[in-house]
Design a protein around this nucleic acid. Structure first.
Length: 467
RNA sequence: GGCCCGUUCGUCUAUCGGUUAGGACGCCAGGUUUUCAACCUGGAAAGACGAGUUCGAUUCUCGUACGGGCUGCCA
């Protein structure tokens, strides 16, 4: 095994869906590891039994899967490793780096309330820190880390630079709860160490915690991984991302009809940059991604830009790939499976469809002339285009199309000639043709539709509209 | 309250002391056109504020303001 190998991890807590901010954190870790031939691990931080649910774990896995963020090895449950965490806590107890604290939660709460009321620091100083063992009562206790009170702790962060926190700001964090279960603060350190994590890219809500976690590394004599604390994503109003901003879970973006590679591109670009590159492939992201390019300030989520990127990716994707992703989208949103025949037509029309749609719902709209069956339901605008005059022209057109060779040039000639015969331009004919072929006023090019539909279906639809 | 972090066009960002402060999305105008979209051309649009260091600050330092985070026997 190569000791230089990069190992990253994504460590969400299973209390809900995969949050969009979490997805970006996962993406950064994935890009960093995969781009360097390293490993990307997944650990579920489920030590809070009251809030963790298997449904949430499943939702996170699903979200990761959709985003294409594959992890190495088994999914690790932090809760399953509780014994190991306790073992480390007891080691620190034995080595004098930790101590038993018998203060009850009520006592501590009372202290905090009083401190707050007086406007004083709410940092709790346990009276048990230096208590002799023979004074210990026979009562439940928590294991606290004995943090230094002098000097300062410097967090070396790959994004934030050196962050110095005075030790008198640190409390003696709890490692083991009074019921013997480990806290996140301890577990995260033990797990990262045991899993061989070399780089931990995580939200900057953990930046302050890093100082206390560092003490555990020091107490155990372990190497500290490279930390990179990335700023959180904010909503469009600059406030913390919350439910009122709409889409929060990645599965919502899937349901909104964004292809996964567009999501990866957009998310990567949110808070990270590689010069002026905006639109890029996964291969390029993998090659370019580094910690240096990560910005320090929080970014806001912008759907307009996502839309644009999404459109560019759709255009650049292979026809089959777009179709496959589109089918997955349809199944997620509960739409019918595509009939093989319609699938073929969609594939045939894909070069046109994919370049004019930004999202899958838009693609559905553009593909309406394929998806809808005769007799077509027409909206008001389409119906309006089929006035008396137009219908008579369509009636005149049908026989002319009967035996022509079905290619673009011929069709253009026929329609242009017809328009000329009526002393008008083709543009005038286009509206009723759209209405006849798609039942809508906004559609792909008339010729594109005719070519995809073929002569029989085209003529049948024209006849439907003419009567 | 204490501590920590952040602040360049509306948004995402580039800039490693010297630039007409660049790009992208969006927006506006024009063009193309067979509707919508797409596409092409052009345009408006930014260094939070105040000091200091320097020949010279968006860039370095300090302060202020604003925003965010932490301050849990949550993660």
């Amino acid at each position: 095994m190569n000791s230089d190998q990069v190992v990253t991890r994504f460590a969400p807590s299973p209390t809900g869906y995969l949050h969009i901010g979490g997805a970006r954190t996962a993406l950064f870790n994935w890009l960093f590891a995969r781009g360097r031939g390293g490993k990307f691990l997944l650990r579920i931080e489920d030590t809070d039994r009251a809030r963790s649910t298997p449904e949430a774990t499943a939702a996170i896995l699903k979200g990761m899967d959709w985003l294409g963020l594959d992890h190495d090895g088994e999914v690790i449950s932090q809760f399953d490793r509780a014994d190991r965490h306790a073992e480390v806590a007891h080691e620190m107890l034995a080595s004098g780096h930790a101590y038993k604290c018998f203060a009850t939660q009520d006592e501590i709460q009372a202290f905090r309330d009083a401190a707050k009321a007086e406007g004083k620091s709410t940092l709790y100083r346990s009276p048990w820190r230096d208590a002799a063992a023979d004074t210990h009562p026979d009562a439940p206790y928590v294991v606290r880390l004995k943090a230094p009170r002098e000097g300062a702790t410097v967090i070396k962060d790959a994004v934030q630079g050196d962050v110095t926190i005075r030790n008198d700001q640190l409390d003696d964090m709890i490692c083991l709860r009074s019921d013997g279960t480990p806290t996140y603060m301890l577990a995260v350190v033990v797990d990262d160490h045991d899993m061989g994590v070399t780089h931990a890219i995580r939200g900057d809500d953990h930046l302050n915690n890093a100082a206390r976690q560092m003490l555990v590394y020091q107490a155990m004599g372990w190497d500290i991984p490279v930390w990179a604390h990335i700023p959180l994503i904010h909503g469009a109003d600059g406030k913390k991302l919350s439910k009122r901003h709409g889409a929060l879970g990645v599965e919502e973006y899937q349901a909104l009809g964004y292809p996964a590679q567009a999501m990866r591109n957009y998310l990567a670009r949110l808070g990270w940059s590689h010069g002026d590159d905006e639109f890029f492939s996964d291969a390029q992201a993998l090659e370019w991604f580094d910690l240096k390019g990560i910005g320090k300030s929080p970014a806001r989520f912008d759907f307009k830009k996502l839309d644009n990127l999404s459109g560019q990716h759709l255009s650049a994707m292979e026809d089959e790939a777009v179709l496959a992703a589109y089918e997955a989208f349809r199944s997620v949103t509960g739409e019918d499976m595509l009939h093989p025949q319609k699938r073929d037509l969609l594939l045939k029309a894909m070069p046109v469809l994919k370049t004019s749609a930004k999202t899958f719902p838009q693609l559905t709209e553009k593909a309406r002339f394929i998806l809808a069956d005769r007799p077509l339901e027409r909206d008001e605008k389409a119906q309006g285009a089929l006035d008396e005059v137009s219908r008579s022209i369509l009636k005149e057109l049908t026989p002319q199309l009967q035996n022509v060779s079905w290619d673009r040039n011929t069709l253009e000639t026929v329609l242009n000639d017809l328009a000329e015969a009526h002393g008008t331009k083709f543009g005038k004919l286009a509206a009723p043709l759209r209405a006849a072929l798609a039942g809508r006023a906004a559609t792909p090019s008339v010729f594109d539709m005719m070519l995809v539909l073929g002569p029989d279906e085209t003529i049948a639809r024209l006849k439907d509209a003419a009567t």
